[in-house]
Design a protein around this nucleic acid. Structure first.
Ligand code: FES
Ligand code: FES
Lengths: 166, 166
DNA sequence: TATTTAACCAAGTAAATTAGTCAAGTATTG
DNA sequence: CAATACTTGACTAATTTACTTGGTTAAATA
């Protein structure tokens, strides 16, 4: 079973996107800034999210990504599956053959567990996450810190230097 | 979050033990034979299971391992935790600090998921697993194939050779 | 008492996976 | 055409997994 940072980053990024994509496409650089996720890594993840049609991309200046579906119809389970392959907990990937071609003692247990996890994740929509109080708090905190202008690393150094001079 | 073969092997081995430990201790070599798990790997796992008092060991000839608790009071979650450290799905290990010391957008989601998984695994006892029809089927199949005598690899070769001669 | 049995223990290791980086593109806008 | 921003693929360091090797120690039995 896989649930690693890859999946967690993907859900976090999609939630960020859901909050900020009302006024047109959001560039990955912004999400990277806000959520502390490496830009190149986000690129990889969104490439997969686009291939599964969870997001749409707009190229060129002013471009970025938008959700390809309403937040209330976009479920966490889909996002994880899109980047993480599968959430299956069996060793045999459902083929019932992990003990030399035969079903092992615990196959059904893991199958059952996988179903429960899938049910849970597929039942929670982005919309639902957006409405949680604690998520709103975090977003609020991030809006305070977040600069409306996108700052490159080079520019940041310049600004820091300027501040040091003051 | 971790749920790998390590945890799966541990549960399978413990279930095998539950089925066969009525007449005294079961040596790991038998479990290894029946469940196709490397003996040395089983030793590592059972070392951890013993340290958490889920099993007791008897050394010397006729020795082996026994369950240290009734199957109805021994839960799958405990076994996995004993060998696998934790089933926690958060990135921050519950510390709410994975985004540079602060709580990330999705912390509560993973916390919630972890709770669900724990609940599920801690609610299923070995006893319950033993009573499932499909598990009984697999055990039955294994008893047919299983030789009552423990055969070393060397002896196996000899037997195979003998059969070839016939 | 010697031998066998089986638990116990410590290291090492090959393969896989993760979480990225880096570099060279291509498409779109102004 | 130049700047912006997405796209792609290859590469990498660190970590984890699933083992193996090579022993030592304790108990029973011949
Ligand atoms: S997990 Fe499917 S057969 Fe073992
Ligand atoms: S998972 Fe806990 S703060 Fe991000």
């Amino acid at each position: 079973m896989k649930l690693s940072s890859k999946g967690r980053y993907a859900v976090t990024a999609m939630l960020d996107l859901a909050f900020h994509s009302k006024k047109g496409p959001v560039p990955l650089a912004e999400i990277s800034e806000r959520q502390d996720i490496s830009l190149s890594y986000l690129e990889q993840l969104f490439s997969k999210l686009r291939r599964t049609n969870l997001v749409a991309s707009v190229r060129g200046p002013g471009g970025g990504y938008t959700l390809n579906r309403e937040p209330e119809n976009l479920f966490v389970g889909e996002i994880i599956q899109a980047v993480n392959e599968n959430i299956d907990a069996t060793k045999c990937s459902g083929k019932s053959d992990c003990k030399g071609g035969e079903k092992c003692l615990t196959h059904n247990l893991w199958e059952n567990l996988s179903d429960r996890i899938s049910d849970f994740l597929n039942q929670i929509s982005l919309q639902e996450l957006m409405q949680k109080r604690d998520v709103k708090e975090v977003v609020g905190r991030q809006s305070c810190y977040q600069s409306s202008v996108i700052v490159t690393d080079l520019e940041k150094t310049t600004i820091d230097t300027k501040l040091n001079v003051l």
